[in-house]
């Protein structure tokens, strides 16, 4: 009787302690997130000005702005998405609409999963040995974009596949029933309805590309000049930030660049999130 009561009381104490720890962990995690963002913004934003965004760096970045690195980031990211999006969406369409589950689809899914787990430094090594050296593209927009494209491909495939699977099956029946070919069905019914999810995936991939350093530094290079062609080397914001910080060139400029970098990636993520929420709502309304 008493033993039971004590055990009961003990369990309640244990529960209270455990829950307190869990609450603390959750709040601490949120606090860390807030701290990182606010820390960079607080120390970086005062050094951000219109001139900083629109002028070229001087003395390796000690003075001046970051315009070429902004352009570089945009060009490299757009290049990567332009390559990876058609491939990724195509692969997702194939997996969902053109085949049954089979050893082939399992192999493709395994490939995508394995690729998703490859660390970015390996992509950097690979891009360097394959695109830069073997295919003689040099440190260039082309090498960088191709490397990034392979890196973001799994994300685009996975999100596109998930989005396509939420398109209700009766739409497919109706479309086929009205004499659509498979490809017509895909383009007229499946893709338009999966579009929000697909775009979300692309935006997440953009976020990953913008923040990437290891895979970019060995494939696109670190040149501070404005890129002029597909084979020009360039430096992205993330690479620039890394070099400013690690070589101690200018802390002030590093904070400012970091602030721009974090604002960009946060915006991209918030946008993606907002699209997800909207897509989920639309989906609920329909079903």
């Amino acid at each position: 009787m008493t033993a039971g009561k004590t055990r009961r009381a003990g369990a309640q104490v244990a529960e209270r302690i455990a829950f307190a720890l869990i609450w603390t962990s959750a709040l601490a995690t949120l606090a860390v997130l807030a701290f990182i963002v606010l820390y960079i913004l607080d120390l970086g934003l005062p050094h951000v000005s219109w001139r900083f965004l629109t002028s070229a760096p001087e003395e390796m970045g000690r003075e001046g702005g970051i315009l070429p690195t902004i352009i570089g980031t945009i060009v490299l990211t757009l290049g990567a998405v332009a390559i990876a999006a058609p491939l990724g969406i195509g692969a997702a369409v194939f997996l969902t609409e053109y085949t049954w589950e089979s050893p082939v689809t399992r192999a493709i899914r395994f490939g995508a999963e394995a690729l998703a787990g490859v660390p970015s430094i390996i992509f950097g090594l690979f891009g360097f040995i394959f695109f830069v050296t073997y295919l003689k593209m040099g440190w260039s927009i082309l090498s960088g974009s191709l490397t990034l494209a392979i890196m973001i491909l799994p994300t685009i495939i996975r999100t596109a596949e998930e989005a396509i699977r939420t398109v209700p099956n009766p739409y497919r029946d109706v479309s086929f029933g009205l004499g659509a070919t498979r490809w017509q069905m895909v383009t007229s019914v499946v893709l338009p309805n999966a579009l929000p999810g697909i775009i979300t995936g692309i935006i997440l991939a953009i976020g990953r590309s913008v923040g990437e350093t290891a895979a970019v530094i060995f494939t696109a290079g670190t040149a501070l000049n404005m890129p002029t062609s597909l084979v020009s080397p360039l430096r992205t914001m993330a690479v620039h930030f890394y070099i400013l910080a690690i070589e101690g060139i200018s802390l002030e400029k590093a904070y400012a660049t970091g602030a721009i970098l974090i604002i960009t990636t946060l915006t991209v993520n918030v946008l993606a999130n907002w699209l997800i929420v909207r897509a989920v709502r639309r989906h609920r309304r329909k079903s």
Binding site: P170, Y171, D173, V174, S175, G177, L178, P192, N193
Partner: peptide, 12 residues
């Protein structure tokens, strides 16, 4: 050979 289903399915 056209087909109509049990639940109306207006395409969006």
């Amino acid at each position: 050979v056209g087909m109509i289903f049990a639940l109306p399915v207006p395409l969006p």
